[in-house]
Amino acid sequence: MIDQKTRDELAEIAARYPEKRSGLLPMLHLVQSVLGQVTPEGIEACAEILEITPAEVSGVATFYTMYKRRPVGDYHVGVCTNTLCAVMGGDAIFARLKDHLDVGNDETTEDGKVSLEHIECNAACDYAPVMMVNWEFMDNQTPSSAVQLVDDLRAGKEVRSTRGPKICTWREAERVLAGFSDGLVDEGPAAGEASLVGLKLAADKGWTAPKGADQ
């Protein structure tokens, strides 16, 4: 339910911007955090605060793929099946997970723990095949590592992103997207191995940018 605290937070998001309607995308993230999906109640709350029609909010909510109109799992698992990841093994991973979880694309397991979606390029191609859990990176996956991952998530074991913190729930993630800090920023590395290959090679070879005025 959208209570007064949530209403206040929705208004707080809108107030970050010179024109309040700009807050709509993060506001819908907050709605998902509170309600587990975008519902008519959430749409009306946004519309009321922004002084626009529920139809206008609905139009936005249905345009962007991260907004869900039915419940997703506590752990929303994405498998990149855009060309590069697909070729490198994403298609095999997605097929194995559909079979293992007995769900189709954009469906949730009966226990409500895991939902599965094939996603588009998530800007981690040097770590292909890539998966995401609640929009945290799970780099360099294989079909068997993917099965282990979803089994661990369903069993409630601690799972850490390969380049980030311990995986939080989908609702908690949505709250961060709405602009409210969860204090996990300092967890995980600065960069994964692939991000550093050029830097390490340059260090080995003594290659640098030319000396500048500040050096």
């Binding site: 920023v185 600065a190 960069a191 991000s195 830097l199 070879k205 290659w207 940018a209 030319p210």
Partner: peptide
């Protein structure tokens, strides 16, 4: 201009600190 004898093939500037401890802080 960059006519140094040992011409650098890679020139880390934006990536230069990525390997540093807590480089994001």
């Amino acid at each position: 201009m960059t006519t140094a004898p040992n011409q650098s093939v890679l020139t880390p500037v934006l990536t230069k600190n990525w390997g540093d401890e807590q480089s994001w802080k």
